[in-house]
Design a protein around this nucleic acid. Structure first.
Lengths: 223, 223
DNA sequence: ACCTGAACACCGTTCAAGT
DNA sequence: ACCTGAACACCGTTCAAGT
């Protein structure tokens, strides 16, 4: 059912940036970034590949638009609970929710996220306000915020597969470790051997609390 | 000067995994992962593209081999200084040096690093030993190690470009902020406005110290 | 104004052939 | 055993053409 060339008659859905990005997001979320192809994207839209170029300059722009769109969903809930810690937790959980919703885009979100419009500014304001409210000096606010964002991006990346082990990877590590004499890597043997599978699982919450404790320590230190 | 088909005579350099990966690493380090093409790689080696397939099954294997090779350089120096903190710092700096040497591979190192042979085990042993020496229980060791690695990967990613601003990105952020009325994002205005350019720069050291302080706090808490 | 379609310069990889 | 070379099914993108 090839469409005719020319401007589509009324009644036909017009091709727009919005529709293109929506289709692209479906492609990426379902099959990964590698599946995002101008030709496949066009096919999903029922359109000639070149039609897309009327609305977006090139493929890079499609990917950038995707990150923009995903990041635009980012809202840090204003928390009723007292304490800057609760607000930092709210930020962290919101960010984690965002990147988990689009795991194949983690790299691009982590890499371009900040340059992605209003939502980034609003999120930054929320985080900075929480940290400034904790009593940190300006430089401390920036450092703590950077640290938190770095951790969040790193954790998201690790969730994808990897780090010093995660659901899948950790089992590889354990298997390799089991093949070697305990004397070769004694601490790893002892530490990992004494934990249950559940205890081995990465804990976002615990890592976040360690980080928050570090920020708390900044408050009493010189910094 | 096209080579003749067939096994090269003695005197000609034999194609090996080593030589292929070395050429690939040059390509990636100099021009990014996108420049790594089986055809370009072959050209760099003075060889037909298909010759590579005798030594590595496909392109994924080339990339995986690259990560392996890079990760194999990873050595955590044994530190004379006392204190687990010094050893954690040594680990962190060694990792940072590694990823900075091959910035275009950050994503792959962060994502595959752990599944990359001996070097990962040795590094893990060093980190676990430091943290266990601090007096953390097994679960605490794993959590703290995960947190540190997550941070290191996140920082490396941010170094590439991004996060809530870095050399380049932070200036974009400041420029956008400057265009808006101060009333819209008051905390960001105040915090960022009161810092010099030098103070705005990301500080690996400071972020690392906050994190170490968090681990120190674990020692006195329940955990 | 908006879309199509042929064409170009690339990709990774299979398969048959050379030495 | 090791390499070449043609071929195939893809890419992103330019440029001319249709309505």
């Amino acid at each position: 059912m090839p469409r005719k060339a020319g401007r589509p008659k009324t009644g036909q859905a017009l091709l727009t940036q919005e529709r293109i990005l929506s289709a692209a997001l479906v492609l990426v979320d379902e099959h990964g970034v590698a599946a995002l192809t101008m030709r496949r994207l066009a096919a999903a839209l029922g359109v000639d590949p070149m039609a897309i170029y009327r609305h977006l300059p090139d493929k890079r722009a499609v990917l950038a638009g995707l990150v923009q769109r995903v990041f635009a969903e980012f809202r840090v809930p204003t928390v009723e609970e007292d304490g800057w810690q609760a607000q930092v937790r709210a930020f962290a959980h919101a960010y984690r929710t965002l990147v988990r919703a689009h795991p194949h885009l983690v790299f691009y979100v982590a890499t371009d996220g900040a340059s992605s419009g209003e939502a980034a500014l609003m999120a930054g304001e929320a985080l900075y306000t929480a940290l400034a409210g904790a009593g940190l000096p300006p430089q401390g606010v920036v450092r703590a915020a950077d640290l938190l964002v770095d951790f969040l991006n790193g954790f998201a990346l690790g969730d994808l597969s990897g780090r010093l082990g995660r659901p899948g990877e950790r089992h590889d590590l354990l298997a390799r470790l089991a093949e070697l004499p305990a004397s070769q890597y004694p601490t790893m043997h002892r530490v990992l051997g004494s934990l249950t599978v559940a205890e081995l699982e990465a804990s976002f919450e615990t890592e976040l609390e360690i980080l928050i404790a570090g920020i708390e320590a900044m408050l009493t230190a010189d910094c």
